[in-house]
Design a protein around this nucleic acid. Sequence first.
DNA 1: TTATATTAGTGTAGTAACGACACGAATTAA
DNA 2: TTAATTCGTGTCGTTACTACACTAATATAA
Lengths: 224, 224
Amino acid sequence: MLTQQKTFTQQAVAVDVVLFTTIEDTLQVLLVARQQDPYAGQLSLPGGIVEREESVDEAALRVLKEETAITDVYLEQLYTFGEPSRDPRDRVVTVTYYALVNAEQLDTAAGSWHAVEELSDLAFDHQNIVQYAQERLRNKLNYTTIGFQLLPERFTLTELQNVYEVILGQRLDKRNFRRKMLQLDILEETDEFKINGRQRPARLHTFRQAKGMKLQERGLVVTF
Amino acid sequence: MLTQQKTFTQQAVAVDVVLFTTIEDTLQVLLVARQQDPYAGQLSLPGGIVEREESVDEAALRVLKEETAITDVYLEQLYTFGEPSRDPRDRVVTVTYYALVNAEQLDTAAGSWHAVEELSDLAFDHQNIVQYAQERLRNKLNYTTIGFQLLPERFTLTELQNVYEVILGQRLDKRNFRRKMLQLDILEETDEFKINGRQRPARLHTFRQAKGMKLQERGLVVTF
DNA sequence: TTATATTAGTGTAGTAACGACACGAATTAA
DNA sequence: TTAATTCGTGTCGTTACTACACTAATATAA
């Protein structure tokens, strides 16, 4: 119950963002090196303090923009971590987000990409946060179309399958995968092909939102 | 990125809890009447400010205990709402939770139960929060076993089906429902029956956690 | 004691989704 | 022209899902 005072106990509220991309058949996250203590020199998620005049979602977008100069991004709130001991300096409640980008579209990133399977020694509880983001991503892949956020506008079905295999961590049957995707009625063939050296060219497709699968439940910022 | 200062911008962090139960074939939420402005006299979710020495989860449990004197409860974090304008007095970021109890086990509640389908004029953005909690509950019912949290330890299959029907908002086929539940291998027959007047008595079952369905992903406080 | 009203409890058949599986087509480089 | 590589396609068996109706067990009222 809210107290009768005009002001309440105050504490710092932060956002941290797990930005995923796929590079060469691995799932990668953007990390930045911390400049000062605590955890100086260690890698951490891009994050920052929520200012009083911005929403928490806006803070997450701002942090992403500061670190990567990207604005077109799938962004979804993940979980709020509120253990008093998670920041050694002061009580900081952090609202975490995860985001998906196609690495090709990224101009520059202040941080660097790291394979999620090879992370070690992240600052704070950021390793846990990445792991939870990965679980969420894996689950959502099965009943939404967020996977397309990791691809350019036009892509081959093999590229799409690679996204699914990388996130799910297992190989998929090519024919079954294509049958399932095509019958969702969310893909559109283009007249163009991707030429890949001395192989048969692969037809490029585009994604169009349709019935059957939903992209999001709430709170997402998406631009196509 | 965290600033170099030792202290950060501070703001109030609250928790609000959507406590669900089922009463007579309707889904109900616990609401309390606000004593003072803003929204004095209107109904609101039980909630409170997170103190500096407790985790956000602990704050949610504390609030529940203050309002209902219950401690054995399924509790799961829902979403964090951080629009600057959502509280007219001051910036308040609220971390919301939802909880499930069996109404029969509840001793006393400071608030009162209200059918979710008939809510109106809740304080703050609490109507949105209830609606989102209801969506989450509906989704989770399909791939977890949280539904059992709304039942006493021993229950009939018809009572179980009622829980599913009330949450999903649709009638289910009795034979298909029972076949599906039984083959999950999470129910145990007891030797006892529930006698319901001039009808055939119904066998009581108990729930036991098993493979196949998972109860939770993270952050839950559960006691059986 | 018998009849009636009410909910409990059970099986089948048709359909749709899923998983496993192999080969010809198109291209480039040698 | 040949070799190497990835693209793109269909079938069959199994499993899961949907729709659907009657008998069993009890309490009450006649």
